[in-house]
Design a protein around this nucleic acid. Structure first.
Lengths: 136, 136
DNA sequence: ATTGTTGGTCTCAAAAAGAGACTAGCGCTA
DNA sequence: TAGCGCTAGTCTCTTTTTGAGACCAACAAT
């Protein structure tokens, strides 16, 4: 399905097919598809504050399933945003902490989070307006 | 219908306050869950540049299905990020354009996109490293 | 008369996510 | 000592979401 596999990346991006913009072969997509998951941002937000253990994260985000917690943490680890350390205690405990790469990502990301918090009322208002006009 | 019907009950009595932080009933989540979709950012990025018509967007993002394009555009419209205008031409054409709210969101969001572009190599490297250690 | 274009919707299959049971070794306790 | 819970997960099953593609109606050009 990689239609644009061998076109120029959008680095300086003037030369691509549709008004100078290659959507298919985009590094931004490759990175963003991972952090755009439903739980990724939430976990990054938590781990930006402090390290947490698996069970702590599970309690912190009450409506995540263990399955998705494991999976999301592993994805974030694979992309280098968080680290996983196992302590060989009696019941072994695992701690997750943010890496430097993760922190550098979280810097711009937290701005979006702040925007979301600040503009939540506007978005809710827009939804109401839309739903009313749809009702007609 | 399925799309707009998913308003979550959002258990208001339940609090999961951990170190002064409510994860469950978070406005940030409410907003972010919408723009964190696979295609949302891509479409916002396109419409931040200029207005586009339905078919133009479909061609611009070659691997999106019409179904998801319709759905994502409608979500973005409902949350007030984009506007939809129908021109009653013989084959009626529809133009999508970004609103002011959308632009104000895209400002911090574009920073994340820039980060993604700049740090794509680091992320790829992290993946390679992880996959190698997994291989053992 | 056929083909193509417009912006969708509809159906069905595939993929992803959610729910919950199950694991193993240890500590506590009844 | 049998039972229970704690740890961090995995495994399976069901439900939800997504993807692929057919279909629509009116009109324009071939």
């Amino acid at each position: 399905m990689v239609l644009n596999a061998n076109r120029k990346p959008m680095l300086d991006g003037q030369e691509c097919e549709t008004s100078g913009w290659d959507m298919g072969n985009c590094p931004v997509r490759d990175v963003l598809d991972r952090i755009a998951g439903k739980w990724s941002t939430l976990l990054l937000e938590a781990l930006a504050r402090q390290p947490y253990r698996f069970g702590e994260l599970r309690r912190l985000v009450p409506d995540i399933s263990q399955r998705m917690l494991t999976q999301t943490l592993r994805d974030l680890q694979r992309d280098g945003y968080i680290e996983r350390e196992v302590f060989p205690t009696k019941p072994p405990s695992v701690e997750y902490r943010m890496t430097e790469l993760g922190r550098s990502l979280f810097e711009p990301l937290s701005k979006v989070l702040q925007w979301a918090e600040a503009n939540h009322p506007s978005v809710k208002a827009a939804r109401v307006k839309y739903d009313e006009s749809e009702l007609a």
